[in-house]
Amino acid sequence: MNILGSIKRLYHQFASPPYFYRISGLWLPYIMGLFVLLFAAGLYSGLILAPIDYEQGEAYRIIYVHVPAAWMSMFIYIVMAVTGAIGLIWRLKLAEIVMISSAPIGASFTFLALVTGSIWGKPMWNTWWVWDARLTSELLLLFLYFGVMALYNAIEDKRTAARAVAILALVGVVNIPIIHYSVEWWNTLHQGPTITKFDKPSIHLSMLVPLLIMAVAFKLFYVGSLFMRVRTELLAREQKSKWVANLLKK
């Protein structure tokens, strides 16, 4: 009980805007620094050290950007749904802000995954776009992000907007598996030109390690840019409060 109580206290402390603002400011340089290091390491090992793929040649190297971006696009949507639920249930302002600040980052990752996917598709499939199941569900995910951002911008009162967006994100997260499997089923019956799929166990360790480094780097980038957005949003929303005034005085 004592441990639970201290966890709860820590949680509330972390969720208070001035505390979060201070702590995130301390962490931010380390997060971004670590991101730069891992990103450089991942790019170097992925683009230069990793062996050439015997089937796809050099062109496969785009997966070091594409795959982590695609992972992030889904991960961030889930983060939005979870923080949205927290915001709805406990009315936690910070959770709402984390949710809404995640949306543009998630949309950018989704867009990046789509663009790198089609750049990869050009030499591989000889076409920029294929109605492949994964591409299509990624496109639909981008549409879901657009819906979230449009709804948030349309509602004047930002606290109401955050609650509306939280409901939408939760509805979306229930729908994502349905959309994904329906698209997959649709695609298998249409039999698109899906020549290549990465066989998960067959990827060699020397190719896998850079990928994992890049995935961690992308996560760090997300956390770092999320912190920046949340800090700005906190200042904007709490501009009349005492702690912001105190900050300005310094």
Partner: peptide
């Protein structure tokens, strides 16, 4: 905005 919100959900 309504169409942005619900058209993706209509796809299945």
């Amino acid at each position: 905005i309504l169409s942005l919100l619900i058209l993706p959900l209509y796809i299945p």
